[in-house]
Design a protein around this nucleic acid. Structure first.
Lengths: 189, 189
DNA sequence: CTCCTTTTTTAACTTAAGTGAACGAAATGA
DNA sequence: TCATTTCGTTCACTTAAGTTAAAAAAGGAG
């Protein structure tokens, strides 16, 4: 289980046994059942998530309708806005499947960073990377039609379409479920 | 001129005179004329930008058409994807106006972080903040219609509409210039 | 297996954005 | 200053997404 985390980190640096032990000793692995709500609108939480297994999802409820904006499957990280700006959350976070997550918070990060400053460098670099990638997806979204967005999803994250209901994919693509159904129909021929 | 930078940083921490001097000694302030292209498609650069004065813009050229995806006015930061993933850039960066920028690169960051580790913490926190905010804008974009996006821009960044040509705003909103013209007409009544 | 709920598809109709073209206004530059 | 390019608006037409409603299909619970 720890391996998923260290495999991920090993793409950036070699982690010593001492460091591994320190992280495991934090006891940050958590199991959640499918459907568990990790964060609710209006709630303030400092927690950040790294997905070891399973998948989590962000969604808003706007005029009574669920609007899904992001999915985080294995090896992805979510630091909700409310954990950064210390304000109540505008969105929900829930588990799409039974999941194992690392749940971190600023205090434990501080503990680790003080003992192993290399980890703060790692987190800085990871954030910079994630930011640049998020901007690139946003760019792709802006410059594409709904159909192109769907095709791109099919190419880059085909797994998602298997794991997640279509109506959630639809709002993730910025359209209504009926439109996604239509696009799929259009494409099969 | 330095003040713009230190005013910005002072929202996060108190900067000592020694630290200020070290940063100023890096000699990282640069002047650019309106229209200067800072980064070209296909180019690889390590540079990151902090806007002291003026405004910079990111755009793609897709099928011969400019597609603007982002603006960075005073006190905003741009770390292009190519500076993070070390690959050739897919987009251009140019100056919307005569601008004064801080141009940084990984080596000088390393120099500063080694001497003043607090600055790495600052950069980590800033990246985390920027990431969360970028995600929030992306969410807002996905869950809005073009008209709502325009109204939101009008509310949150009215200055942009004065500083930037309409056709650039249009692609920033994910639509064609004609559609933006139509939306504006629709709204005046 | 059956019933009930959720999800997906279909359809008809409405609305708004894309497209291509034309025109005038504004900005640019020689 | 005049000529030229660029920009914003308008129009007519096309295309695709939103909306509302209903039916079909799939999934889960008992």
């Amino acid at each position: 289980m720890e391996d998923k985390l260290f495999d991920y980190i090993s793409r950036y640096m070699i982690v010593s046994e001492e460091e591994k032990k320190a992280i495991i000793d934090l006891d940050i692995f958590r199991n959640y059942k499918k459907g568990t709500i990790l964060l609710t609108e209006g709630q303030q939480s400092d927690d950040g998530y790294f997905v070891i297994k399973g998948c989590i999802r962000c969604y808003y409820i706007i005029d009574g309708e669920e609007k899904t904006t992001a999915f985080y499957p294995e090896s992805e990280t979510l630091a909700p806005l409310c954990s950064v700006n210390k304000k109540p959350s505008e969105y929900y976070v829930s588990c799409v499947e039974d999941s194992i997550l690392i749940v971190s918070n600023p205090e434990m990060e501080k503990t680790i960073f003080e003992r192993f400053p290399r980890f703060e460098t790692l987190c800085r670099i990871l954030s910079e990377e994630l930011l640049a990638k998020n901007q690139a997806s946003f760019d792709g979204f802006k410059t594409s039609t709904p159909e192109q967005r769907y095709l791109n999803l099919l190419k880059t994250r085909p797994d998602l379409l298997q794991r997640v209901p279509q109506y959630q994919i639809a709002s993730y693509l910025g359209i209504e479920p009926q439109s996604l159904s239509r696009i799929r129909k259009r494409l099969v021929k």
